[in-house]
Design a protein around this nucleic acid. Structure first.
Lengths: 272, 272
DNA sequence: CTCTACTGCGTAAGTTATACGCAGTACTAC
DNA sequence: GTAGTACTGCGTATAACTTACGCAGTAGAG
């Protein structure tokens, strides 16, 4: 252990974490994402910037997968030392949160003119495309409600499409969370299947076809008749093409939502 | 490194992993879960059993959280050594998969008499209760379609409720996946919020109330008007009570599904 | 009784995140 | 200028882990 044997004249306390103390009470990652944390102006010039680091992290995640994102790897990407990153980021999780926010990006401007259904469909599609592009995001465990700037922007974007409906605020929020959760689930499942099969050494297409055969090996149709029927019908094999799967669930959700929106419009006299 | 200095007379190859070679092509965890892997009858009496180990793992997860589940901790729980577990389990992930299957358990017998909607509602509720009981499961990253025995049993259970509808097999499967994914999402979000707030040092109730105040600190109502409205209305604060949130989304999904089921029944002449 | 396929498990290697504190830098105050 | 000091990057070290490897011993098979 590092005994104090130097001639160092200061020996001050180490800084709390990255940056000055926070008074907001927000989680550190969230503070960082919103650019709070005023930076002092004293000491040596800083060698890196937060955005640089986060970009490097995303670069690593995109090219080598989330598993390759270690503090050391990201630092190497920048030609810096591992520990230097901790001057900008208080923990690895914070880096990951920031990477997510960067990758999510600013959503395309909403166009409420097209109606809630078309709007939400587009929202879902855009989110899906994003996840397919940055499939490492599917491997990040979500552990808090969305609070970073771009996440909020997407939320806002979706809420805008619901503005002219008679849903309550709480219902709108629930709707958006349900929808984005759905998109994440379906896309993630699809990615997992593809990845597992690719790892087993087939092409993506052939891989998806073969999944049902694994089920067939294990599921006894006598004990699980309904599941057995699905397997026999080859449903597990093709998964019906990912996009169809996606659209089916999306359609159901929006249908259900539409029923409520319609019901709200007529009987009540809340406004208009 | 262990140089060979002993008088050992054998020096054979180490066994592949836990147990004999597999010929099924299934992922190792799945094989283990279904009890494939015939055990030989030679050598010394085994000191442990797979179920014992998996139970110990669940015990640790329940009482100390998923993060506490390490090979060493589980072994200690059994009074065994860390490495001895690898005679039963090929990797930690396999242990986790088996823990999941054990915790999921056998679902209650379905009663298709009550109709698909009541049935699926009960299914969702039962799954939700399970996740609330074993909240560590929410922290496990799902990385494959459900394939272990009890997972399949739950799937079968849900499919049974859809038996008498005119949905296609593919639609039924999508429906169940959508539903269980939804339950997992909502329950997980709820658990995350509670956990985060508890960590911040409030009681569960008070914690949930305070979440919206974090949003208020960060969201500029001018830039994000719709989101700002939600915050101002206190929607983020209460999250509308977890159960309401849960029931809202569930209702929407089932409504949407109902519309399709009804539509299928009338116009077509597929059966009956 | 011997052979040998097993067993539990000690040892050690390889990864990680990250606490701690040093040596140096560049504003600020005089 | 010159000192003081609040910073900087980063080397060193620690604490968890997972897991490969191989030894010493055990018990069914022949």
């Amino acid at each position: 252990m590092g005994k104090r044997g130097g001639t160092g004249s200061q020996g001050g306390q180490p800084p709390e974490t990255a940056g000055p103390k926070s008074t907001t009470g927000l989680p550190p990652s969230i503070e960082a994402a919103w650019g709070l944390r005023e930076r002092p102006t004293k000491g040596p010039r800083r060698g890196l910037t937060l955005p640089q680091i986060v970009e490097a992290g995303v670069r690593v995640a995109v090219s080598e997968g989330l598993g390759a994102v270690s503090m050391g790897r990201v630092a190497a990407e920048l030609g810096a030392s591992t520990m230097s990153l901790y001057r900008y980021v208080s923990a690895k999780d914070e880096l990951i949160d920031l990477m997510m926010d960067l990758a999510i990006g600013v959503p395309p401007e909403p166009d409420p003119g097209q109606g809630w259904r078309a709007g939400l469909t587009w929202f879902a599609q855009a989110y899906r495309d994003l996840l397919l592009q940055h499939s490492w995001m599917l491997r990040v465990r979500i552990s808090a409600p969305p609070m970073t700037p771009n996440q909020i922007a997407w939320l806002e974007y979706a809420l805008t499409y619901l503005r002219d409906t008679a849903l309550t605020g709480s219902e709108k929020l629930s709707t958006v969370l349900m929808l984005s959760g759905y998109v994440r689930n379906v896309t993630g499942l699809e990615a997992d299947i593809t990845a597992a099969a690719l790892a087993a050494g087939s092409t993506a297409e052939a891989a998806m076809l073969s999944y049902g055969q694994l089920y067939a090996k294990v599921v006894d149709p006598a004990r699980f008749p309904e599941t057995g029927k699905l397997i026999a019908d080859g449903v597990m094999d093709q998964e019906d093409l990912p996009d169809n799967e996606f659209n089916f669930g999306l359609g159901r959700i929006l249908d259900g939502l539409g029923a409520l929106i319609d019901a709200r419009r007529e009987p009540s006299s809340e406004e208009t």
